[in-house]
Design a protein around this nucleic acid. Structure first.
Lengths: 239, 239
DNA sequence: GTCAACAATATTGTCGAGAATCATGTTGTG
DNA sequence: CACAACATGATTCTCGACAATATTGTTGAC
C-alpha cells in the first residue's frame, strides 16, 4: 500500500534498522555506513542505499551529499516544536471522532488494549511498541480525514527516536495502560473534552523523558539554554 | 539543505518534471516512462529513477512495484480532506504570526508582492508560481514553529498538481494580487481575525477550479457523488 | 613543534548490462 | 466464437564495477 516499491526484502531491512534506532542500539548522530550494514544484514549495498532513502523519508535518518547517513538528531527546540504540532493534530483528530464511539471501534480497541497490557507485563517491548501504535492509530482513523491521519502517523514515525527514552523507563511504561484505559472510558462515555485532553496529555511523558535524558548536552545546548523560549503548549490544553 | 543528496543535476531534473506537472503538460494518471524521460532530458536512467523517488517523496507522483511511476491523481474526497488540513494548518500559522507584524517582514512582503503583480500582468506563470509561494511562505515562517511551516510547505508542494487548474484561469489569477493586498493590510493593521480568515479563504478558489475541471469524471466518481459527505470546512472559518 | 601540502584510505555516487516482472498479442482447444 | 495457456515485447529492478568525493595519515619546510 504505502510501500513505495519493492517486495518484502527492503521492508524487512528498513524495519530492522528502524528497530535499532527505536531501541537505542543506534544512537542519534551515529553514522550509518553502507558497507557495514550491507555485510551485517547480508543485503546488497544497493538495497541498503534504498533503505536509507526510505528511512530518510520517514524522518529517522539524515543524509548529506557524499557524507552518508546518520541517525537523525533533534535539537531541543525542534523537539518542542514537533510535539507542539503533534498536540495540535491529535487534538484535532480527537475532536472529530464520532461520539459516542461505535461499538465495533470500542471492541477493537479493547482487544488491542488487552494484548497491550499483557505484553507490557512481559516487557516485550517490540510488541508493546506495535500495539501502542495500533491503539492510537485506530482511534485517530475514526476521525474522517485520511490526510489528518497520515500527518499524525508521519509524526509518530518521525518521533520514534525520541520516544525510545520513554520506552526504556519501566516506571513510565507501566503508567501507559492506565492512560489507555482512561481514553477508552472517555470514548465509551462520549466525553469529548476529556478525550481530547487525554489524547494530548498522553504525549508529554515521553517528551519529558527525552528532555531529561538529553538535559543540557544535546546538539546546540549553548544557544538553547539561552534562547529558551516559553513553550506555546498552552493552546493545546485549552478546551 | 533539505536536499537529500546530490548536486544540481538531479535538482534540475526534478524541477523540470515538477514544472511539467504544475503546468499540466503532464496530466494526473499519466505514466512516466524512465527511458523516455531519460532520452528527453539527456539524463541517465538512474538519475531519472532517483528523481522519481524524490517526486514521490514530494507527493507529486505515485509508484507501484514493477509498474513504474504515474503523475499523482487525487480523488474528490482526498482533495477535500487535504484542503481541510491545509486550512487548519494555515489558520494555525496565521494565529501565531506576531502582530503587529515586524516592519522588516512587511517590507519583504511588499517587495515580493510588487514583483508578483508585475509578473501576473506579464503572464509569466513560472515566476508567478514561485513568487506566490515565497509570499505565503514568508508569512508562515513568521509563526515560530518550523515543524508547522514544514507541514504547510509539504502540503503546498503536494497540491501543486491540483492548483494548476487555477493557474490556467486568467480570471482567477487576476484576483490574487488583490487578495494578497488584503493580507498585507491585515498584517499592517494587526487585525488577527481578518488575517486568519484571509489566509484560509485564499485557498478555496483553486480548490473550486479543480473541482470544476474534474466535475464528475474523476477517479471514482460513481461513489463520490453518492457518498458526498458534508464538508467539515466550517471549522476552519469559525473565528 | 606547527602547519601546509600532498598521499593514502575509506566511503559514497554513478553507470550500464542483465535478470525479473508485467502487459499485450497470439495461438490452440472446446 | 469464447477463453485459457502460452509466447512476445516493453519496462522496471538489481547487481557489480568503477568514478568521484571526503576523511585521515604522512611528510617536509620553516
Amino acid at each position: 500500500m504505502s510501500k513505495p516499491q519493492n517486495d518484502g526484502q527492503l521492508a524487512e531491512l528498513v524495519d530492522r534498522i528502524k528497530l535499532d534506532i527505536i531501541f537505542g542500539r543506534l544512537r542519534p548522530r551515529e553514522r550509518l555506513i553502507e558497507d557495514d550494514l550491507s555485510a551485517q544484514f547480508g543485503a546488497s549495498r544497493h538495497l541498503v542505499r534504498t533503505a536509507f532513502t526510505e528511512l530518510q523519508r520517514m524522518g529517522l535518518v539524515t543524509r548529506r551529499p557524499n557524507k552518508g547517513a546518520v541517525v537523525r538528531d533533534f535539537s531541543p527546540e525542534e523537539v518542542d516544536e514537533i510535539y507542539e504540532m503533534r498536540a495540535i493534530l491529535q487534538r484535532e483528530a480527537a475532536s472529530r471522532v464520532p461520539l459516542p464511539a461505535h461499538p465495533d471501534l470500542i471492541a477493537r480497541l479493547e482487544q488491542i488494549h488487552a494484548e497491550y497490557c499483557r505484553e507490557v507485563d512481559r516487557r516485550n517491548l517490540k510488541r508493546v511498541c506495535e500495539l501502542n501504535n495500533e491503539f492510537h492509530h485506530t482511534i485517530f482513523k475514526a476521525s474522517d480525514n485520511r490526510c489528518l491521519v497520515d500527518l499524525i502517523q508521519r509524526m509518530w514515525t518521525e518521533t520514534l527516536g525520541i520516544r525510545c527514552y520513554a520506552m526504556g523507563d519501566p516506571t513510565l511504561l507501566c503508567k501507559t495502560p492506565e492512560e489507555h484505559s482512561q481514553i477508552l472510558n472517555a470514548l465509551r462515555t462520549g466525553n469529548r473534552k476529556r478525550l481530547m485532553r487525554l489524547c494530548v496529555d498522553h504525549l508529554w511523558p515521553a517528551l519529558e523523558a527525552y528532555k531529561r535524558a538529553h538535559g543540557g548536552w544535546s546538539s546546540n545546548a549553548m544557544q538553547s539554554t539561552a534562547t529558551e523560549k516559553p513553550l506555546r503548549l498552552a493552546r493545546a490544553f485549552s478546551d
